[in-house]
Design a protein around this nucleic acid. Structure first.
Length: 551
RNA sequence: GCGCCUGUAGCUUAAUGGAUAGAGCAUCUGACUACGGAUCAGAAGGUUGGGGGUUCAAGUCCCUCCAGGCGCGCCA
């Protein structure tokens, strides 16, 4: 099905042959939407804007959808849907399996790379953002009919494992007895040991070679470390209610065997060249080269990311790549994408997007660290949130706070603000949902409401009060909002939409008695409650937030 | 030094080049034996960091300056 906005757009575009520049009306008295196209066309044609607007109004046939169009100000065309069109659109939406969300005509295989915690390190607030944002984007893209391939690029490979394994052997620890806390503590001891004992450092370096060579004992201990951390990741994912499972794990280690070929192929293609003993790529217009192979022959994360691109296109069949990684990595991805395109591994038909995001800041407005200067663990943060609110509400608060402002901006982790039950917060949206649900429950108990009412031909006849009309209009914008998030990869747009919906719901709730209304009006209003409840639940689900029936 | 990002009301923030910059919090004023007040209605609060420019129209695009953050060859 196509949304009201889509229908409007098509009518105008067909009549004009150009983008009608439809925008939500700036003020209620201007109607529901406005078209600004007359001003542009008038300028291009050297005519008066209002004349052009009048011509357009005469040209577009919208009698079945809208009230007569009006021209205002310098040449804006104001558009107001008829109540019947609004009700029909909402009715269709309620009978659509996807609640009106447009199913893509060109389903793709979208790889979403997110979360990416490190083995033997506790998950911290930096992982939090990637996890929450990536999960939301995955859900939105799936809702549009794409196949989403989640990739959790965990840090399970690299030089740190040499010293970790070596430390375990030196201490005589049984790797099977490790848990998350003890492996983290072990990592800290290994780091200190590495820094102060040259003999140990040398042994650790040899241990890296053994790991890469597949030495069985080294591999066994390494695997034990991963298993311990994996269990910790999964606990965090379950707690947060994100989709990631073991099936989505694709850590750095799986690309290890592919790295030499990446270097060799880039060299053979002439994309990478030897410089100062390293194999590097000089990216056009960029001073800093991308280092594919270090001068000691080892590989860094550039090589891993390039190997991952080849794997994701070649093996996973990706048609679109999305990386949900902190904003500081923007330059790195720019270089990696450039290199992959240059090498022909990433054709122009496959978009590769880095969804960067700002940092989570502490109360002092600086990078979130403990007093000792260490990263704040995710668990401790979530524990703290759950002291303020029940688990469902606490997670909603944390996730919504993370998703509700522009991605590229930093934000301060402020529990009081995010758990507030009023204002633009997760708990407020959950509350609006619970209220709608409450009315339906009561109505059902009194025999006023049953899902069978949806089998009718449409809404009961009757006009809409302003609060009802505003609510219906907002409900019909749900598909457009989801489409927008899918296109821009900006979850905060969905948050704004849902907040506006909850606000419209609250106004309706206040102004329009449901259970005490006369039967026909009551049925209309119950259907509105039902619609609000479903759209809020579905919208929150796309954000990865649960919508409890009661709070 | 080069590059990227940010700067909007006291605070947190929205705004695909369009009308009077839209919200929330806090503040003030109203509405409660309520379809759960975990609420709603209203008021007040802005020279969108400064200065130029482009445009019929600029928070948005261009230039410049200021402030803050981040990144810039062998960590990931």
């Amino acid at each position: 099905m196509s949304s009201l906005y889509d229908q409007l757009y098509d009518r105008f575009a067909t009549a004009l042959g150009t983008d009608p520049e439809l925008r939500p009306a700036g003020r209620p008295e201007f109607g529901h939407y406005q078209s600004n196209v007359a001003l542009r066309l008038a300028n291009e044609q050297g005519r008066k804007p209002r004349d052009v607007a009048a011509e357009i109004v005469a040209q577009v046939d919208l009698a079945d959808l809208c009230e007569p169009l009006s021209i205002a100000g310098p040449g804006f065309i104001n558009i107001r849907f008829t109540p019947a069109a609004l009700q029909a659109a909402l009715w269709a939406q309620l009978h659509d399996a996807a609640l009106g969300i447009a199913q893509t005509a060109t389903p793709g295989r979208v790889v979403v790379d997110y979360s990416a915690p490190n083995v033997a390190k506790p998950m911290h607030v930096g992982n939090l953002r990637s996890t929450i944002i990536g999960d939301c984007l995955a859900r939105v893209l799936m809702s549009q009919g794409h196949t989403v391939i989640r990739q959790n690029h965990i840090g399970d490979w690299g030089t740190q494992f040499g010293m970790l394994v070596e430390q375990i052997l030196v201490e005589g620890v049984d790797a099977a007895t490790l848990d998350l806390d003890s492996s983290v503590a072990l990592y800290k001891r290994a780091q200190a040991h590495f820094a102060e004992d040259e003999a140990f450092a040398e042994a650790a370096r040899r241990r890296v070679v053994a790991l890469q060579a597949g030495d069985p004992e080294t591999r066994r201990i390494w695997q034990a470390l991963i298993d311990v951390s994996k269990a910790g990741f999964n606990r965090a994912y379950r707690r947060l209610g994100v989709l990631l499972t073991d099936d989505d794990l694709a850590g750095e280690s799986i690309y290890n065997s592919l790295l030499p070929a990446v270097a060799e192929d880039l060299a053979a293609l002439g994309v990478a060249v030897e410089d100062q003993g390293a194999l590097v790529v000089f990216v056009d217009g960029d001073d800093a080269p991308l280092i594919v192979r270090k001068s000691d022959g080892g590989f860094g994360y550039a090589a891993t990311d390039l190997a991952a691109i080849r794997y994701r296109l070649g093996t996973l069949g990706a048609t679109r790549l999305i990386y949900v990684v902190g904003a500081p990595q923007a330059h790195h991805f720019q270089q990696v994408f450039w290199t992959a395109r240059k090498a022909g591994w990433l054709p122009a038909s496959v978009p590769a997007e880095h969804v960067g995001f700002g940092s989570v800041l502490g109360p002092d407005g600086k990078m979130f660290k403990t007093r000792e200067g260490k990263a704040v663990s995710l668990d401790s943060l979530l524990d703290e949130a759950e002291q303020v609110a029940a688990p469902d509400v606490a997670m909603a608060a944390v996730k919504y706070a993370d998703l509700s402002n522009s991605l590229h901006k930093d934000y301060v982790f402020d529990l009081d603000r995010m758990t507030a039950t009023t204002g633009n917060t997760g708990p407020y949206l959950q509350y609006a949902h619970a209220r709608a649900h409450q009315i339906l429950r009561k109505a059902e108990a009194e025999g006023y409401w049953s899902p069978a009412l949806l089998d009718a031909a449409g809404f009961p006849a009757g006009s809409l009060e302003p609060a009802e009309e505003a609510l219906v209009l907002q409900l019909t914008k749900f598909p457009d909002t989801v489409a927008e998030v899918g296109a821009t990869l900006q979850p905060h747009r969905l948050c704004s939409y849902l907040f506006d919906l909850a606000t419209a719901m609250s106004a309706f709730y206040e102004q329009c008695p449901v259970l005490k209304a006369e039967p026909a009006v009551r049925t209309t209003r119950l259907l509105l409650c039902h619609a609000v409840q479903r759209v809020l639940a579905q919208g929150l689900d796309l954000l990865g937030i649960v919508a409890p029936d009661r709070m």
